[in-house]
Design a protein around this nucleic acid. Structure first.
Lengths: 164, 164
DNA sequence: TGACGACCATCAGAACTCTGATTAGTGTCT
DNA sequence: AGACACTAATCAGAGTTCTGATGGTCGTCA
């Protein structure tokens, strides 16, 4: 007995069956992001860092003296979140913050020697995760993946979802 | 003056320049996941739900009476996290929890009529996001993306990263 | 029956994340 | 000079998430 896939789909809609988890691209992204997060977290943990702290230190090491607001933009978090991250980093003695000599309402942030040491240690292992990941794909596949991800990103940001 | 790309790369390694954000697949995943999260969040917000709450209600609607531990596994969060989510859902009157008639240490959870209503409302809009996303890809592209994501997942979970 | 292991639920503590609101300095335009 | 807009920093509150620890219940196996 042959069952038409179209009919199955139509019936599903009639009985109000929802889109399954597996059909949703979102669930795949979530899983991958979660696993990646876990791997990275395990990688930077021995250095006493969390992933967001590592990201902040990473940017700070490239551009010492950057403001918290700019740092937040680079790390793709809100300024409030960055304030929290910096507070924890400062409490651990990994960064130091001093008022800007000219702009009084700007606080310059830069890593301490201890911060740079932690960053080095974390970066070695974090890069290892990325390299292992990259090794699972040919250059062409990696490019395809990047392109598809960019398309997802574009779709999500240009679509008028937020206005509906 | 011609500069060899290989030499540039070699120099970078010598001066200990780190892997850039753009080289890291992780940064692309993070961005996409973040945007997707934002879109979903905006979609379910009018129904008074957060994304994890929506996910929990979604599973609960398919399998009423499920335990919190099982629910946590389905939603890919820890039992502790699910406890928090359920506490908030219960406070909002969207679910009800009653002791299991046989196993006294198990609490059965099921959506209330209000919960089902919120789920319906949220699901319509959440599905809309997924459909719009799916519309940006051909069936073949979507399949490629799913396959690549699965490879990432496999690489991350089978690799001995966590033991290093 | 009694011990052990497996599982469920939950508390405690910490970190990250967001939205919303406040305070204050800088720069521009009238 | 004064008004306005922009930016920086931060507080407050809420939600999600984790690890670690605790206590209770069920089933199995000696």
């Amino acid at each position: 007995m042959v069952v038409n896939a179209y009919i199955i789909d139509a019936v599903r809609r009639m009985v109000c069956m929802r889109m399954s988890f597996d059909e949703r691209l979102g669930s795949h992204f979530k899983r991958v992001e979660q696993e990646l997060q876990a791997a990275k977290s395990a990688a930077v943990k021995p250095a006493g860092l969390t992933v967001p702290q590592y990201a902040a230190l990473f940017v700070l090491d490239e551009q010492p003296g950057i403001s918290a607001a700019e740092l937040a933009r680079r790390c793709a978090v809100t300024p409030q979140t960055m304030t929290t991250i910096l507070r924890n980093l400062e409490a651990g003695g990994l960064i130091e913050r001093t008022p800007h000599p000219l702009h009084k309402h700007v606080i310059e942030t830069r890593p301490t020697p201890a911060g740079r040491k932690a960053l080095d240690q974390a970066d070695k292992r974090a890069t290892g995760v990325e390299r292992r990941l990259a090794a699972a794909f040919s250059e062409e596949e990696a490019e395809t993946l990047r392109a598809l991800l960019a398309r997802v990103s574009e779709t999500l940001t240009t679509d008028p979802i937020l206005k509906s």
